[in-house]
Design a protein around this nucleic acid. Structure first.
Lengths: 356, 356
DNA sequence: GTTAGCAGTCTTGCTTCAAGAGTGCTAACA
DNA sequence: TGTTAGCACTCTTGAAGCAAGACTGCTAAC
């Protein structure tokens, strides 16, 4: 089952060239560009075997070879030769993160922006937030006669888009009082521990506002429940048109459909939450990608706490090298932010060895 | 310069049919379907004159006629025969707005969702917010050592995505104190009146937090400044693929580009802010639309106050009748919400006369 | 195991052709 | 003067045929 070194070399060459050109690769091309001391006939027989094994395909008899998802997977895992970002690029990343503050959504969004900018692909971001997050603050802001804005701060996120409609006009003072009750009862709790039961406890303080507390608990539960759909952000959607495959209207339509159903994407992104760099290529790795797209994401951590992931959603024929490079640089930069004394806004990374 | 009734009729027929079919309309078709008592030769000569006048075009000698932007404009203004929504549709709209609360962004978003759903086009929404808005409440929420979330409530909007980084760790109590100062000084003021001067006044209360106040004022000024880019929302982007013109990759790419530069769109939307229903067709009305797209929007008001507009961005060959119908129904529903006694959740609109 | 050589296959672009659709023009008519 | 019939002309569309070019797969020899 293991491929010979020569087969691996040929496979690598095919994928490399195909990523660069987008044209099927012929035996002649391989020989001329990379393997001068092999005859085209030999290469052809190797190619035929790689096809047999499910790595390659050729569109028709008189065409060259094209990689199949299986080939891309092997390529991303071991064949591809990774390269380093230039110093300018690293400085650029550092600079982008030099100010701002560690709120998940903001950071993930910034990372996604940077990724789309540096890779020319569409970037996706996923804001981690789960039932384990701890409440750090609660605020109620009265907006109108019967509307209240609820702001909940957890250790990593800010839940702020939650409007609550109250049955009848509530006096400002009561809101303040309710807020105090909420702070007293909820701060320090994990989201998962806030249940209907909490409503009982809250209501025991201010029976008349049971309905308000009910709604607040409902909002928080909804927040935990809806994380897959709600927490996906996109940047640089229009980058797709920089790539040939999106000359095809069907591919484009399909891509936009995937983007339009963030639920599925969210699931994928959460799944790969713990992996440093996760690669999903084609239908076999994730149905929604069909065999046209790939999703490469990195998990980002600040102060040891995962704040989400960000990466690239693009055509299966993607510049994996560049994507890996950008993702890991950003990942590294964010880790460095944890101990800011070390990197005084100009932290060059001399050590590319493990720094764990 | 004024068109004869017959010319208008022919023009109307051409636009109607072309909107329905997407095929160039021939003199024969017109005769068969609509003008049986005219010969095709006569119709042809009328068509030739309408072409001369810049209303029509024909792709090549042996093709029928196709409307030009000028024709769509006349059609939308006076030729088109408007139709009424069915009672079910009206009920549906009522129901959608029956709950919720009058915060601009939420309402505009809901309206946009509804529009995209009922028209099958991409809906755009524009949240009105301008320097005339009055501050109604201010809250500061401490998120971390040096980060504060600023929430400002105006009479129509909630400004909530504004994080402020403070120089050094600020004590919770000081935040509360600062909040009180802000409330005391800013509530009741219009946004336009909050300037650098205000910082002076604020700082006179708490000199040590001049920098914090500086930032807050900067955030508010930025909010007013950035309204065009920030306040545009989209719904149902993928609806475009329900229409033939988006089989063409260039059109699609172009459309997505327009969507990607909300600044220009925002400007258009603000421009047409006061008009009940605004129609912009083709390049001549707005450069960004080139001659492929049209923008039809309605301005929405609740309690006499404009909260923004929402409408449709779609191909120039658009079902204007349906779009007008949906937009005005929603507009009407929202107005009715102002005096909720009249419409007990089932307010049928018997009077289609003016109710101003 | 490797290679040269050749037949076979499929794409691509060009040309040709015929059918069909619709126009513009002209001359006659009311 | 407006309307109409008729006809020549133009352009599209689709099918079909053809030649050139690109690769492959296979075979037989090394």
């Amino acid at each position: 089952m293991a491929l010979s070194e020569r087969k691996k070399k040929i496979l690598q060459v095919v994928v490399d060239d195909y990523i660069a050109d987008g044209q099927p690769i012929s035996s002649k091309t391989i020989q001329e560009r990379h393997l001068k001391d092999l005859s085209t006939a030999t290469i052809r027989s190797e190619l035929a075997q790689l096809e047999e094994l499910g790595y390659l395909d050729h569109p028709h008899t008189s065409a060259g070879r094209v990689p199949l998802p299986k080939a891309y997977r092997l390529y991303a895992q071991e064949l591809m030769q990774s390269t380093e970002l230039t110093e300018q690029e690293i400085d650029y990343v550092h600079q982008k993160f030099s100010k701002g503050f560690p709120e998940s959504e903001y950071l993930v969004r910034s990372a996604a922006k940077l990724i789309s900018e540096m890779t020319d692909y569409t970037a996706v971001g996923f804001v981690e937030h789960n039932e384990q997050d701890t409440v750090r603050n609660v605020k109620l802001v009265k907006l109108s006669a019967n509307t209240v804005l609820l702001v909940v701060v957890t250790d990593v996120n800010v839940i702020k888009d939650s409007f609550i409609t109250t049955a009848d006009d509530v006096e400002e003072e009561y809101i303040t009082a309710a807020e105090q009750v909420l702070v007293a009862e909820l701060v320090g709790k994990r989201l998962v521990d806030i249940t209907e039961e909490s409503t009982q406890i809250l209501s025991s303080h201010m029976q008349q506002y049971k309905m308000l507390f009910d709604e607040i608990v409902a909002v928080l539960k909804e927040y935990v429940r809806s994380r897959d759909e709600q927490s996906v952000v996109f940047e640089g959607n229009n980058n797709i048109f920089k790539h040939e495959e999106f000359q095809d209207i069907e591919t484009t339509r399909h891509f936009l459909e995937v983007i339009d159903t963030p639920g599925e994407l969210g699931e994928m992104l959460r799944e790969s939450g713990d992996i440093e760099i996760s690669v999903k290529i084609g239908r076999e790795d994730a149905e929604a990608l069909s065999d046209s797209f790939a999703l490469v994401t990195a998990n980002y951590r600040v102060n040891g706490k995962s704040l989400g992931s960000a990466g690239v959603l693009g055509p299966i024929r993607m510049d994996y090298r560049r994507v890996f490079r950008v993702l890991s640089t950003i990942s590294q930069t964010l880790s460095e932010m944890s101990n800011p004394k070390e990197c005084e806004h100009h932290g060059r990374t001399e050590s590319d060895a493990d720094d764990e």
